[in-house]
Lab assay of single mutants.
Amino acid sequence: KITVTFNGEEKARRYYKKMQKHNLKVEIRVENNQWVVHVE
């Protein structure tokens, strides 16, 4: 499981979509004013 933190929504969403293309289970959320993407 990987957790990647971004300081911008745009970058986070781009990464999220990229990971989805690989058929990975991805989850995006905001934690402590940071955009966090969890990849299983």
Score class of each variant (00 low, 15 high):
residue 6 F to W: 02
residue 25 K to S: 08
residue 21 K to M: 11
residue 17 K to Q: 13
residue 22 H to L: 15
residue 9 E to G: 03
residue 38 H to Q: 14
residue 27 E to D: 07
residue 19 M to H: 03
residue 31 E to F: 05
residue 7 N to E: 13
residue 16 Y to Q: 08
residue 23 N to H: 14
residue 22 H to D: 05
residue 15 Y to H: 03
residue 39 V to F: 06
residue 40 E to H: 09
residue 29 R to W: 13
residue 9 E to S: 04
residue 37 V to E: 01
residue 37 V to G: 00
residue 13 R to C: 13
residue 25 K to H: 11
residue 8 G to D: 15
residue 40 E to I: 13
residue 4 V to E: 03
residue 20 Q to E: 07
residue 37 V to H: 00
residue 31 E to L: 12
residue 18 K to T: 09
residue 28 I to T: 00
residue 6 F to G: 01
residue 3 T to W: 04
residue 20 Q to G: 04
residue 39 V to L: 07
residue 28 I to D: 00
residue 16 Y to R: 04
residue 24 L to A: 09
residue 37 V to Q: 00
residue 23 N to W: 09
residue 17 K to T: 10
residue 21 K to W: 08
residue 11 K to T: 13
residue 23 N to K: 09
residue 8 G to P: 03
residue 25 K to Y: 08
residue 33 N to A: 06
residue 32 N to H: 08
residue 24 L to W: 08
residue 25 K to C: 11
residue 36 V to W: 02
residue 33 N to D: 11
residue 15 Y to Q: 02
residue 10 E to D: 11
residue 2 I to T: 09
residue 27 E to A: 07
residue 20 Q to W: 04
residue 33 N to K: 05
residue 20 Q to N: 05
residue 22 H to M: 13
residue 40 E to M: 12
residue 8 G to W: 08
residue 12 A to S: 03
residue 31 E to H: 08
residue 28 I to E: 00
residue 29 R to M: 11
residue 14 R to V: 08
residue 12 A to F: 07
residue 23 N to A: 12
residue 37 V to I: 04
residue 34 Q to C: 12
residue 5 T to H: 13
residue 18 K to Y: 15
residue 5 T to Y: 13
residue 35 W to S: 00
residue 26 V to K: 00
residue 11 K to W: 10
residue 4 V to F: 07
residue 21 K to H: 10
residue 24 L to E: 03
residue 29 R to F: 13
residue 12 A to N: 01
residue 24 L to R: 09
residue 13 R to K: 11
residue 19 M to K: 02
residue 17 K to R: 10
residue 16 Y to K: 06
residue 25 K to M: 08
residue 5 T to R: 14
residue 35 W to I: 02
residue 34 Q to G: 05
residue 3 T to C: 14
residue 27 E to T: 14
residue 35 W to H: 00
residue 1 K to M: 13
residue 15 Y to R: 04
residue 38 H to I: 15
residue 27 E to L: 06
residue 22 H to Q: 11
residue 7 N to C: 12
residue 13 R to D: 04
residue 18 K to R: 10
residue 24 L to Q: 05
residue 31 E to V: 13
residue 4 V to G: 01
residue 32 N to V: 05
residue 29 R to H: 14
residue 15 Y to A: 02
residue 3 T to S: 09
residue 31 E to K: 07
residue 4 V to N: 02
residue 17 K to I: 13
residue 24 L to N: 06
residue 18 K to E: 15
residue 31 E to W: 04
residue 11 K to D: 15
residue 25 K to V: 09
residue 26 V to A: 07
residue 24 L to I: 11
residue 7 N to T: 11
residue 36 V to G: 01
residue 30 V to A: 08
residue 10 E to S: 09
residue 26 V to N: 01
residue 19 M to V: 06
residue 13 R to L: 13
residue 22 H to A: 12
residue 17 K to H: 12
residue 28 I to G: 00
residue 39 V to S: 02
residue 12 A to T: 02
residue 32 N to M: 06
residue 36 V to I: 12
residue 33 N to R: 04
residue 31 E to R: 05
residue 36 V to L: 07
residue 37 V to P: 00
residue 40 E to A: 07
residue 24 L to S: 05
residue 36 V to H: 03
residue 13 R to V: 07
residue 22 H to K: 14
residue 28 I to S: 00
residue 14 R to W: 11
residue 3 T to H: 06
residue 23 N to L: 06
residue 18 K to G: 04
residue 12 A to D: 01
residue 24 L to F: 11
residue 7 N to H: 09
residue 3 T to G: 03
residue 14 R to K: 13
residue 30 V to D: 03
residue 40 E to G: 10
residue 32 N to R: 05
residue 28 I to Q: 00
residue 13 R to Q: 07
residue 7 N to F: 11
residue 14 R to F: 09
residue 11 K to V: 12
residue 16 Y to A: 15
residue 13 R to M: 11
residue 31 E to Q: 09
residue 17 K to M: 09
residue 17 K to P: 03
residue 19 M to Q: 02
residue 21 K to Y: 10
residue 21 K to T: 08
residue 18 K to V: 10
residue 22 H to N: 09
residue 12 A to K: 01
residue 30 V to L: 14
residue 16 Y to N: 01
residue 24 L to T: 05
residue 21 K to P: 02
residue 28 I to N: 00
residue 27 E to M: 07
residue 22 H to I: 11
residue 25 K to I: 11
residue 25 K to W: 07
residue 2 I to W: 15
residue 35 W to D: 01
residue 37 V to R: 00
residue 10 E to N: 09
residue 12 A to G: 02
residue 20 Q to L: 14
residue 10 E to K: 11
residue 13 R to I: 10
residue 26 V to E: 00
residue 30 V to G: 04
residue 39 V to W: 05
residue 29 R to E: 07
residue 12 A to M: 03
residue 7 N to G: 09
residue 34 Q to Y: 09
residue 26 V to I: 05
residue 40 E to Y: 15
residue 18 K to L: 14
residue 39 V to E: 00
residue 15 Y to P: 02
residue 6 F to S: 01
residue 25 K to D: 06
residue 11 K to R: 12
residue 16 Y to W: 05
residue 8 G to V: 14
residue 36 V to P: 00
residue 15 Y to S: 02
residue 34 Q to V: 11
residue 19 M to W: 05
residue 33 N to C: 11
residue 40 E to V: 11
residue 9 E to H: 05
residue 5 T to P: 04
residue 37 V to N: 01
residue 2 I to H: 12
residue 32 N to S: 05
residue 12 A to I: 04
residue 19 M to P: 00
residue 37 V to T: 00
residue 27 E to G: 03
residue 20 Q to C: 14
residue 17 K to G: 05
residue 30 V to K: 14
residue 21 K to L: 10
residue 29 R to V: 11
residue 32 N to T: 03
residue 2 I to Y: 14
residue 6 F to K: 01
residue 20 Q to P: 02
residue 10 E to P: 04
residue 19 M to S: 02
residue 13 R to F: 08
residue 10 E to G: 08
residue 17 K to V: 10
residue 20 Q to D: 03
residue 32 N to E: 08
residue 33 N to M: 06
residue 13 R to A: 03
residue 3 T to I: 12
residue 7 N to P: 10
residue 6 F to R: 01
residue 10 E to M: 10
residue 14 R to C: 12
residue 6 F to Q: 01
residue 9 E to K: 07
residue 16 Y to V: 12
residue 1 K to H: 14
residue 18 K to D: 12
residue 33 N to H: 07
residue 3 T to A: 06
residue 27 E to W: 06
residue 28 I to K: 00
residue 19 M to L: 08
residue 29 R to N: 07
residue 12 A to H: 06
residue 32 N to L: 05
residue 31 E to D: 07
residue 2 I to N: 05
residue 12 A to L: 04
residue 22 H to G: 08
residue 40 E to Q: 13
residue 14 R to M: 09
residue 38 H to K: 10
residue 35 W to Q: 00
residue 1 K to P: 11
residue 7 N to D: 15
residue 15 Y to V: 02
residue 26 V to F: 01
residue 4 V to D: 02
residue 37 V to W: 00
residue 36 V to Y: 06
residue 35 W to F: 04
residue 28 I to R: 00
residue 38 H to W: 07
residue 30 V to C: 14
residue 1 K to I: 13
residue 32 N to W: 04
residue 37 V to M: 01
residue 36 V to A: 04
residue 15 Y to D: 02
residue 5 T to S: 09
residue 31 E to P: 01
residue 18 K to P: 01
residue 15 Y to L: 04
residue 28 I to W: 01
residue 1 K to L: 10
residue 26 V to Q: 00
residue 38 H to P: 01
residue 36 V to R: 03
residue 4 V to K: 10
residue 8 G to M: 12
residue 20 Q to F: 06
residue 11 K to C: 15
residue 16 Y to F: 12
residue 4 V to M: 11
residue 16 Y to L: 11
residue 27 E to S: 13
residue 34 Q to D: 03
residue 30 V to E: 13
residue 9 E to Y: 14
residue 30 V to M: 14
residue 8 G to Q: 15
residue 35 W to N: 00
residue 31 E to M: 08
residue 38 H to S: 15
residue 5 T to D: 03
residue 1 K to Q: 11
residue 36 V to M: 05
residue 22 H to Y: 09
residue 3 T to K: 10
residue 39 V to N: 00
residue 14 R to H: 09
residue 1 K to F: 13
residue 6 F to N: 01
residue 30 V to T: 06
residue 7 N to A: 11
residue 16 Y to T: 03
residue 21 K to G: 12
residue 24 L to G: 05
residue 18 K to N: 10
residue 3 T to D: 04
residue 8 G to I: 14
residue 26 V to W: 01
residue 2 I to L: 11
residue 3 T to R: 10
residue 8 G to K: 14
residue 20 Q to S: 08
residue 28 I to Y: 01
residue 31 E to S: 08
residue 20 Q to I: 14
residue 32 N to P: 03
residue 34 Q to E: 07
residue 38 H to N: 10
residue 10 E to T: 09
residue 29 R to T: 13
residue 30 V to Y: 15
residue 29 R to C: 11
residue 1 K to E: 08
residue 1 K to Y: 14
residue 37 V to S: 00
residue 22 H to W: 06
residue 34 Q to F: 11
residue 5 T to E: 05
residue 24 L to V: 12
residue 35 W to V: 02
residue 8 G to N: 15
residue 22 H to F: 08
residue 20 Q to Y: 05
residue 30 V to P: 04
residue 23 N to D: 07
residue 3 T to E: 07
residue 7 N to S: 13
residue 26 V to D: 00
residue 21 K to S: 12
residue 28 I to M: 08
residue 14 R to Y: 08
residue 14 R to S: 10
residue 16 Y to E: 07
residue 11 K to G: 13
residue 11 K to L: 13
residue 27 E to Y: 07
residue 40 E to D: 09
residue 38 H to A: 12
residue 34 Q to A: 07
residue 18 K to M: 14
residue 16 Y to I: 07
residue 17 K to A: 11
residue 30 V to R: 13
residue 39 V to K: 01
residue 2 I to Q: 06
residue 30 V to W: 12
residue 20 Q to R: 11
